[in-house]
Design a protein around this nucleic acid. Structure first.
Length: 430
RNA sequence: GUGAGCGUGGCUCAACGGUCAGAGCACUGGACUGUGGCUCCAGGGGUUGGGGGUUCGAAUCCCCUCGCUCACCCCA
């Protein structure tokens, strides 16, 4: 009988690490609130068709990375591999297009992709994302980037770089793809096998191929540059976005080879990268998706958004994190014997009413055990209650730092604890 | 899906093919019968990932399998 283990590419998150997750989540919530974005929670699984149509049939995600299954009713369902398509689905399904066409939403939660796990890449991973739907203005693209930037900054992440590009729109994208195909008409032999395939299925993706032979082709002077094919509107959109970013003081580099893996992107595409995570260097990315709603069968609705990978941020925080104190606030209740347990449980109700955090250990062990345990947990104040105290109707309060201890009545104990422990203070991590 | 490296107590790691597979940390108990940290002593905990093979003898060598890690691919 072999030990049961978590499925490949998944893991338990607990212990010290959980504080990091909480910190990220709290930052996301507070920045969202400051920018006026509302939370949306969509299902963990959706109909397979949503992703096939929304993310794109030709993408790697749809072709090989989805957790797809049939339910007992024979419906094809898929664990969500990303968050934007479901959000747009909800927007259309709930009729926002007609009754409230402009919304600003954010989400937070697990995503699933069937891939070989490696550093910073899991089969179940977590993203938070922000979506602004119904806005055409490049200023909105800039706001999305500003939100991302604010969150990274708020978390204290350094040395991140922002890469940005424009993928064109329905007017100019086809022209560029045509030019690409023309260019390769007699040079396709120079491409790697993967890219030969892409030439038909997803030609833009050739741009970010890392194979050396493809790179050589990409660097040739005759190679069509995406930026040269942008129509006037797209050029203007990009120029305004870049101008705004400059005004905001957000540094960026234009990467004409940045194309994102999902079909729905138009115009703005961007990626936030770090140099500290090995091969999986993108900590967030996003862009404009003016074609998505129509791909899902809705009317044309513009949108722009981004998503960030939480485990990658956790990895970065762990690298930067210096020693953190694990001191807990509150009081350790140390009962000696059954009677002590009962009395302390009653006391805990009183503490509750005063907002004093407590931890009661029901191990039914010696005082030595309790003191060791409180020590290990980093709790300063210990209330000891055994036969002696019960007889005298007192509580023995011990200060683990000074070693001093005093007998107190319940009122005296409460007074002292309230002085020493400011209830609201949460010292679990700074 | 492809390639490489690695699987030994809860954790980190020892053990030239040769007695009962060890140590540190952690845990439990004692020295200290109701007083923590430091120290000392003792104890529990392993089918050496699983299966097969070679051998008088396998944690060690070979094959298969599973898992982990890293990279490719792709992305967050």
């Amino acid at each position: 009988m072999s030990q049961l283990k978590v499925p490949k590419g998944t893991r338990d998150i607990l212990g010290r690490e959980i504080h990091l997750w909480r910190r990220i989540e709290e930052t996301v919530y507070s920045v969202a609130q400051l920018f006026g974005y509302q939370e949306i929670r969509t299902p963990i699984f959706e109909s397979t068709e949503l992703f096939a149509r929304g993310v794109g049939e030709g993408t790697d995600i749809v072709q090989k990375e989805m957790y797809t299954f049939l339910d007992k009713g024979g419906r094809s369902l898929t664990l969500r591999p990303e968050g934007t398509a479901p959000v747009m689905r909800a927007y259309l399904e709930q009729g926002f297009a007609v009754h409230e066409p402009r919304v600003k939403w954010f989400y937070l939660g697990p995503m699933f992709r069937y891939e070989r796990p490696q550093a910073g890449r899991m089969r179940q991973f977590h993203q938070f994302g922000f979506e602004a739907i119904g806005f055409e203005s490049p200023a909105c693209d800039a706001e999305i980037i500003l939100i991302a930037w604010t969150i990274y900054e708020e978390l204290g992440l350094k040395r991140l770089s922002l890469e940005i590009n424009s993928l064109g729109c329905n007017h100019c994208k086809p022209g560029y793809i045509e030019a690409l195909k023309n260019f390769f008409r007699d040079r396709s032999e120079e491409l790697c096998s993967n890219c030969k395939d892409r030439l038909e299925r997803n030609p833009l993706r050739i741009l970010d191929c890392k194979v050396e032979t493809c790179q050589t082709v990409l660097r040739s002077t005759a190679f069509p540059n995406l930026q040269d094919f942008l129509c006037e509107d797209c050029k203007k959109h990009q120029a305004e976005l870049l101008q705004t970013l400059t005004a905001l003081g957000i540094p960026f580099v234009i990467n004409p080879h940045l194309v994102r893996g999902l079909d729905y992107y138009t115009r703005t595409a961007f990626e936030v990268k770090t140099g500290e995570l090995g091969a999986q260097d993108a900590v967030g990315g996003g862009g404009r998706y003016d074609n998505l709603s129509q791909a899902l069968g809705g009317q044309r609705v513009p949108g722009v958004g981004f998503a960030a990978g939480m485990e990658r941020i956790v990895l970065l925080l762990q690298k930067e994190e210096t020693e953190t104190s694990s001191e807990r606030s509150g009081v350790y209740l140390a009962p000696l014997g059954k009677e002590g347990e009962r009395y302390l449980l009653v006391l805990s109700r009183v503490l509750l009413q005063h907002g004093i955090p407590f931890y009661t250990d029901f191990a039914d062990k010696t005082l030595k055990y309790h003191l060791k345990r409180a020590q290990k947990m980093g709790i300063r104040w210990v209330v000891i209650l055994g036969e002696e105290e019960i007889q005298k109707s007192v509580f023995l309060l011990k200060d683990m730092i000074s070693g001093e201890q005093i007998s107190l009545s319940q009122e005296g104990l409460l007074k002292k604890l309230q002085e020493e422990i400011s209830g609201a203070e949460n010292t679990y991590l700074r």
